[in-house]
Design a protein around this nucleic acid. Structure first.
Lengths: 213, 213, 213, 213
DNA sequence: CATGAATGAGAGTTCATTCAT
DNA sequence: GATGAATGAACTCTCATTCAT
């Protein structure tokens, strides 16, 4: 599992990747600092040189994951493709990211729930400034996730307006296929019958057919 | 929150319901015996009169939830309806169960992951006999979940054979809509714009259209 | 050191006494839950059955100590003695309490500084209600300490008004002898040349002479 | 808070002053190497170029503080003043030092307790030679503090012999006023009603009156 | 000199679990 | 049945300290 030889120093990126990995395997609550540290051949204490605390670390994982997937999706939205082609490409990008680049993207969405409810460790220490910064970042991540979802809604809406898609409840329809995607992150095994891009294609077929006028 | 007055004795059913509730609110890892106990006006220690340990209790929640939803789905599968009508009814039953009867059904599937990976306390304590029984029940639950999923696959397959549905990858298609369903359990709020049965209808539309020949 | 045989259960009082002991020996910051627990033959974890957390426990120590010493001092203030006799008795009571009944009273005042500045553990957990209760109790203790000091100021003021004492700066004079008292708690050793009541008598002489018109 | 611009190199003196400051603000146990380092714009690691370890650093603070106050007191003791005038000047010097020059002197005495009891890191690491040197310095500081106290006792004793003062228990009397002084360090606030020299004058009045034959 | 990275030790705290009453 | 008391294990986080650069 260890991704780094013991005699090299580790940077934030390494830790984020490792954390994303553990996060996806174990879920938010079950992920311990020790687990993450082990993944990069460090002790738990060492992680605190790079991140103030567990919540901040995991927040950084979500931020990175979100930016990465949005970075892939956004250009498609603004391209000159047909709405159908856009949606197909976006679905593929999302699912492939969830299966292949698993580490960073999947964990993110699945555990967003945990993030929202919890209280930060900073809160506990009375470091109000730091705590407020954390809350701000947390809300920023939630807002960013909404923007991510909005990108999909936008394309669905556009397709309907252009007459490419039948009129559907945009919100529900989007949540429907995003739910299907995210779930892939839970059952996908690299050793399975189909690869990520094959699954993506099948799912894209499903949802594009469902949108036919 | 407490569902029982303090002066009444509590039975397994009460505890299972309470546990399902807490489970759905907090997730597997974040659910404590104390939380569950509080819900039925007991102390954590008292729960051990009814269940051997936490894992067993939560396993029982899953068993009950699974049996309940399967109990709803199975008659539909064996009815004389068209495959399309069967699927529509099954989808509705599942989603409504996940939103309305939330407590028992939703928690179950979402947290199944936690169950599978973990080691039981019994294992650690060397109580081999008990542990083996636990593992057996655990595997039974997993098998039962597969049977649950198979019920959906069966109807899809049947619809294809009957020519009602276009030929699709049955496994992926089924996972697609089950994923979409399960995800509903995460974002659904009773106060939201649409009720469970409305969401169910929209989702059923989506997937039935996607199956049109 | 252990005050309780291992086979008896322990109550809050036992813990408070033990904690006061440790507190006086080690000071606020250096006092660990483990130290306190060891004193009553428990593990640190067990202390959490009796007190929410360390701060609450130590606050309870201060409360108990304050109430005890105020309980001794107050009747003297309201008695019909001359101001000089009152002050002599109060000084004696205070110093004897600080030396003899050391455990409960001495620790209290000496470490109040730490108390005021710190943030409570409850604060950290977002248990706002509990945290507010803690803050309230904390402020109550500080207020009570001020009342304690006021009892002494009152007698000095009264003595001046009655003409028994020369006019002095009441605030500074009171802080002067209370400082001298508290310091006793730091250097007093039961094995020393003089006992508590002897020291008390000498100190009372000093301060009463200083007050002679 | 930082006392040095970031682009200047730092010497032992700077560190000692900074440490004394932090020490007085936070107390011995709550003072961290990082706190001290921050005060002089260094990292904790850098402090180890100047001092072997935390205990040694803090010991040096005490040494410096002690020497400074003794340096102020001693000439007074050996002057040709009356005992009363000597004592008044010594009391003033001590209290003013504790309030004004706060940083170095107050911390020292207040925390001496911590010093005596603790075990040094050196001890734990088996560096016996270094540890022995540390213990020697530690004992030297304690001895020096006794000499400091002895300076006061000496003047009291002298005053009694000269007939300027009434006969008192020299040890207790000295501890009485030194206790009162030290306590000032705990409650004094520069923003308070009285300045250090005013407090000093009032306290000197008190103790000199108490010594009148 | 100075520092970033790393760590072992230990603190406070939580939690599932046991047991005597 | 139910509970209060107790505990071991595990977790987050802090801190003094070391070392290569």
């Amino acid at each position: 599992m260890a991704r780094k030889p013991a005699d090299q120093s580790v940077n934030k990126q390494d830790i984020l990747l490792a954390a994303a990995d553990v996060l996806q395997r174990n879920g938010y609550e079950a992920t311990t600092m020790k687990d993450i540290a082990a993944e990069v051949n460090l002790t738990a204490a060492s992680l605190y040189h790079h991140f103030r605390n567990k919540d901040t670390l995991l927040l950084a994982v979500l931020e990175a994951g979100l930016e990465q997937i949005i970075g892939q999706i956004e250009p498609i939205v603004h391209s000159r493709l047909s709405s159908a082609d856009k949606l197909r490409q976006m679905i593929t990008a999302h699912i492939v990211s969830l299966t292949q680049n698993t580490a960073v993207a999947a964990a993110m969405i699945f555990e967003m729930k945990s993030l929202v409810g919890g209280r930060s460790e900073l809160d506990r220490n009375g470091d109000t400034a730091a705590h407020e910064e954390f809350v701000a970042r947390q809300q920023a991540v939630i807002a960013r996730r909404d923007q991510f979802e909005e990108l999909f809604r936008q394309v669905v809406r556009e397709g309907i307006e252009r007459g490419e898609f039948r009129p559907v409840d945009v919100g529900i329809f989007t949540k429907t296929f995003l739910g299907a995607h995210n779930w892939v992150g839970l059952w996908y095994r690299p050793s399975g019958r189909l690869k990520g891009h094959e699954i993506a294609e099948l799912m894209a077929d499903t949802f594009l057919r469902a949108l036919r006028p």
